[in-house]
């Protein structure tokens, strides 16, 4: 049920860059769903800032609940709760949702797609995002991914910079118009 290879661990000591606001990653559970829903909705509302075609639908919360419930049962899905430590111990401060997909025509054949990654603002700088991305990459690799991709609004310059710094480059583009 839970993605394997993502047992809770005290990573902060191995990653000095997270010393300012340490977090650790663990597989999400059913009990996390309400918090994860609110984090996902925050992310979607942020996306809304970048393009009118990313307007959040009124039933987005119900949809988030559904998709989390289904992902938690899906062996090729990864849902991670990012937990604070120290004074924030036990508090879920971020979420990662990713899928393993097969690429039909290309190699590497297995792609780890980061669909959603969100951290509360106070847990953003100080290398926390970098650490969460590195851990997510490791988890996806363990599950067979030979390539990691991330989906986010093309206008999100902050995300573009974040991923570019970590070696990501655009490989396919999704162009849209309303009809």
């Amino acid at each position: 049920m839970n993605p394997k290879g993502s047992e809770p661990r005290g990573h902060e000591t191995q990653h000095p860059e997270t010393a300012g606001a340490p977090v650790h990653l663990r597989p999400a559970e059913g009990a996390d769903v309400p918090t994860l829903v609110s984090l996902l909705i925050r992310l979607k509302r942020l996306n809304e800032e970048f393009d009118p075609l990313l307007k959040v639908r009124p039933d987005a919360e119900a949809k988030a609940k559904e998709v989390l419930a289904s992902d938690l049962k899906n062996p090729s899905a990864l849902v991670v709760a990012v937990e604070g430590t120290g004074v924030d111990a036990g508090k879920v401060v971020g979420v990662v949702r990713a899928h393993i997909r097969e690429r039909l025509f290309y190699t590497p054949e297995q792609e780890g797609v980061i669909l959603d990654i969100y951290l509360l603002p106070l847990f953003r700088r100080k290398g926390v995002g970098e650490y969460v991305l590195a851990e997510t990459t490791r988890l996806l690799k363990e599950r067979g991914a030979g390539i990691v991709t991330a989906e986010f609004p093309v206008q999100n310059a902050i995300a573009v910079r974040f991923y570019a710094k970590r070696g990501f480059r655009p490989i396919t583009a999704l162009h849209a118009r309303s009809v």
Partner: peptide, 10 residues
């Protein structure tokens, strides 16, 4: 953690 904090970031 106010709801509009991400909007402010942008």
């Amino acid at each position: 953690e106010r709801d509009d904090v991400d909007e402010l970031m942008v």
